[in-house]
C-alpha cells in the first residue's frame, strides 16, 4: 500500500510540496498527526489524500475535529491513467467551523475495497450503496451493501468507464456519434 501513496504523491508533487499544511487551525490540527495523509488545495478547496488503509482512522479523526456531516461519497474511475483505477471521494462538512473538506483515497483495479464510513457517519449509507452499485467498490463494514438504483439482477456497474453507454441506434439519427 505504500506504493499507492507514493504514486498519488508524485502526481500531486507538482502542486503540493512535501507535507505542506493548511493554514486553517482546525485542519492543521487534523492533518498533523497523520504523517501519511497529504493535504492539497484544489481551486481553493481543501483536499486530503488518504492512503486506503488509513481511510477509517482519518474519517474518525475528522469527525472528532468537528466535521459532523458526511455530505457525499462518490467515485471517479480513472481507468488506466492512474496506477490505482478508482478514486473514492468523500465530501465532509463542518457546520460549527463553516468548513468543507474533501478526502479521497484509491482503490485497486481488481477487488476494489475501501472501509465503510457508515460507522462514523450513518449518512454515508445511501451514498456508499450508490458507489457500490455504479462502480462496484466494496465498502467493508457497510450494514447493507446491495444495489440501490439498478435492479438487483443487473450485471455490471454502469458508471465504470468500460461499461458502454448502452445507447440504441435511433432511426433518424444515423450519425457517427451514436454508438
Amino acid at each position: 500500500m505504500t506504493d499507492d501513496t507514493g504514486a498519488v504523491e508524485t502526481e500531486e508533487a507538482v502542486e503540493v510540496p512535501k507535507r505542506s499544511l493548511p493554514n486553517n487551525e482546525v485542519l492543521k490540527g487534523l492533518f498533523e498527526p497523520f504523517e501519511d495523509v497529504s493535504w492539497g488545495d484544489s481551486l481553493g478547496q481543501d483536499v486530503a489524500r488518504v492512503p486506503n488503509e488509513r481511510w477509517l482512522d482519518f474519517a474518525t479523526a475528522a469527525k472528532g475535529a468537528g466535521f459532523e456531516v458526511c455530505v457525499d461519497v462518490t467515485v471517479v474511475d480513472w481507468m488506466r491513467s492512474r496506477p490505482d483505477r478508482f478514486e473514492v471521494v468523500a465530501n465532509l462538512l463542518s457546520m460549527q467551523h463553516r468548513l468543507r473538506l474533501r478526502m479521497s483515497t484509491t482503490a485497486p483495479r481488481l477487488e476494489p475495497t475501501v472501509a465503510s464510513l457508515v460507522p462514523v457517519w450513518p449518512g454515508a449509507n445511501f451514498a456508499e450503496r450508490e458507489a457500490y452499485d455504479m462502480f462496484g467498490i466494496v465498502f467493508e463494514g457497510h450494514p447493507d451493501l446491495t444495489r440501490i438504483l439498478m435492479p438487483d439482477e443487473w450485471e455490471g456497474h454502469p458508471l465504470r468507464k468500460d461499461f458502454g453507454v448502452g445507447a440504441v441506434p435511433v432511426q433518424f439519427k444515423e450519425s457517427h456519434k451514436v454508438s
Binding site: 484544489s42 481551486l43 455530505v71 457525499d72 471517479v76 465530501n91 462538512l93 474533501r102
Partner: peptide, 19 residues
C-alpha cells in the same frame, strides 16, 4: 481539475462534483 460546488436548493444541499 476537480471541484465541488454546492447551492441551497429548496430541498437542501445540492452539490455538483465535477472532474
Amino acid at each position: 481539475g476537480e471541484t465541488y460546488v454546492a447551492v441551497e436548493s429548496p430541498r437542501g444541499e445540492l452539490g455538483c462534483y465535477l472532474v
